[in-house]
């Protein structure tokens, strides 16, 4: 490993996705953040390819309509910067609903963020009342026992194995509403979208979906925070 790769020239930024901007698609979020980086005047590396793109990596795509308090991107830097100052500059130049929350400098040489952050936690507001908790829990058990969900994305049939992708699922009643705390794992075969599970067990789409955490899962099951 070269000394160059050891230098702290990767700025990892944790940001949220909130309010109306939950309806942005992943490419739209990427485009908006890249423009925020350009606006704030931070130095960044540019690829040498045909299109001269900014060198930046994003964590896994969030479904359209889902909000998040734990999204990440890695910006590759041509020189070291002060992480706190960079965070402040980014805050000033990013739409409030995508505002950066924390930032840290990491070594340049690391696995790609999208593949590395393979575990996620979700808070899902279900489209059913707290009184239905027993029925929903039964439905979840049934789906887990089957081990697979078949569904349509657009006009294409899809199938997701639950054995590896669904880590944990817990129901909570809050007043008259019913929420689901979901732990998922992304694999080479795919990742489970909360809305797919909710549609399967409730027959309807969730009222809201929020990704509340992302981690890297080590081989021994230990979870490592991106920051």
């Amino acid at each position: 490993m070269s000394a160059e790769n050891e230098l702290a020239r990767r700025l990892r930024v944790c940001y949220g996705k909130d309010g109306r901007l939950a309806y942005l698609g992943h490419l739209e979020v990427m485009g908006t953040i890249m423009r925020s980086v350009r606006r704030c005047g931070l130095p960044f590396e540019v690829s040498n390819g045909f299109a001269h793109r900014m060198r930046i990596q994003f964590s896994q795509a969030l479904p359209v309509g889902a909000s998040s308090s734990a999204e990440y991107y890695d910006l590759m830097l041509p020189c070291e910067v002060n992480a706190d100052e960079a965070l402040e500059a980014l805050r000033r130049c990013t739409p409030a609903a995508l505002a950066p929350k924390r930032a840290a400098l990491l070594p340049r040489r690391m696995p790609a963020l999208e593949a590395w952050a393979n575990r996620a936690s979700w808070l899902v507001l279900l489209p059913c009342a707290a009184d239905d908790a027993g029925k929903i829990a039964e439905a979840i058990d049934g789906v887990r026992a089957r081990g697979v969900i078949s569904f349509m994305r657009g006009d294409k049939p899809r199938r997701i194995e639950l054995g590896r992708t669904l880590v944990a699922c817990e129901l909570r009643s809050e007043g008259s509403s019913l929420t689901m705390l979901l732990e998922t794992r992304s694999t080479e075969q795919g990742s489970l979208r909360p809305a797919v599970l909710v549609q399967e067990v409730c027959g309807r789409q969730p009222r809201s979906v929020c990704r509340v955490g992302q981690w890297h899962e080590e081989d021994d099951g230990t979870l490592t925070s991106p920051l």
Binding site: G19, R20, L21, Y23, G25, E28, G65, P95, A96
Partner: peptide
């Protein structure tokens, strides 16, 4: 309806 339509970001406002 935003979750049901094509390109919901057309209707959001709050652009930079």
């Amino acid at each position: 309806f935003l979750g049901e339509v094509e390109r919901p970001s057309r209707y959001l406002n709050h652009e930079w």
